[in-house]
């Protein structure tokens, strides 16, 4: 546990507007009840961490937030998930439009086998966010700067993205997600495939991203959750056990299961 981090962040706990309002969410994979009755309100401009033992449903819930579960034929989602008041599972909602506003970064860096420039420009191109090459250049540069990658790659934008190091690749993927100007950024264990130095860089970046987006991060590492997040949700066996400010969860857990997990007895 890193108490120093928690102390530093004590100033930053005032309530913010709700970005995502989820109530009574259930998810089934075929017969398997993966998420049971989860209600949670995610705040804007906040880093929210989902923690819990593996298989607890935290990644599943994350993937519901931009309907990535649609790609799995057997997955079924019920309940209400409101993004700025619109139910994202409404029949009229086009997941394509939703995902433009709720971006996602994956566990393993997955740059496209294209140039660095094209990787970042891909999203803006398909969503028509730039009218010409000059505008696109601006968008790409901003996104790469936003992902703290610009200085490292500005001289080799036409080289292939798969040639970068692991940490650079993951920041490229973040830049790619940031370039479409989403409102919410979902991160599914973004550091689990990275070495400690790259992890530190990405964590620093996440803290900066909070200025612009609401960030939801799934993580295996409690230290990481404590370092980067303001709010923490603890999942266990598909249930949301406890949700509150990161401070409270780590120092004053209400539920005995939470306490067992953060003290290392389960998980």
């Amino acid at each position: 546990m890193n108490d120093m981090y928690l102390a530093e962040r004590a100033v930053d706990t005032q309530a913010r507007p709700i970005k995502f309002k989820c109530s009574d969410v259930q998810v089934w994979y075929g017969d398997k009840h993966a998420i049971k009755d989860v209600s949670v309100d995610l705040e804007d401009k906040t880093v929210t961490a989902f923690i819990g033992p593996s298989g607890c449903g935290k990644s599943t819930f994350l993937r519901c937030l931009n309907r990535m579960n649609d790609t799995i034929p057997v997955a079924k989602v019920t309940g209400r998930m409101l993004l700025d008041g619109d139910d994202i599972y409404d029949r009229r909602v086009d997941p394509v439009q939703l995902r433009a506003r709720v971006g996602m970064v994956f566990q393993k860096p997955n740059p496209f086998p294209k140039s660095i420039y094209d990787n970042v420009a891909y999203g803006p191109k398909i969503h028509g966010l730039a009218r010409n090459k000059a505008e696109l250049d601006v968008v790409v540069e901003k996104a790469l700067r936003g992902a703290a990658l610009w200085d490292e790659v500005k001289d080799r934008l036409q080289e292939t993205g798969t040639g970068l190091s692991g940490g650079q690749q993951q920041r490229l993927c973040i830049a790619r997600a940031v370039a479409t100007a989403p409102e919410v950024l979902l991160m599914d264990e973004p550091c689990s495939a990275l070495d400690p130095i790259a992890t530190a860089q990405v964590e620093e970046l996440i803290d900066e991203l909070r200025e612009t987006f609401s960030v939801v991060i799934v993580t295996h590492s409690m230290q990481q959750a404590a370092r980067v997040s303001q709010k923490t949700a603890f999942f266990h066996l598909g249930n949301l056990v406890e949700y509150g400010s990161t401070d409270d969860i780590f120092t004053r857990p209400q539920d005995p299961r939470t306490e067992s997990y953060i003290s290392g007895r389960i998980g």
Partner: peptide
């Protein structure tokens, strides 16, 4: 993972396939 990456950016399946 490449398909997921593309879909998560809000591209349609056909855009993902073609691009």
């Amino acid at each position: 993972s490449l398909r997921d990456g593309s879909l998560a950016l809000g591209s349609t399946p056909s855009e993902t396939i073609r691009q």
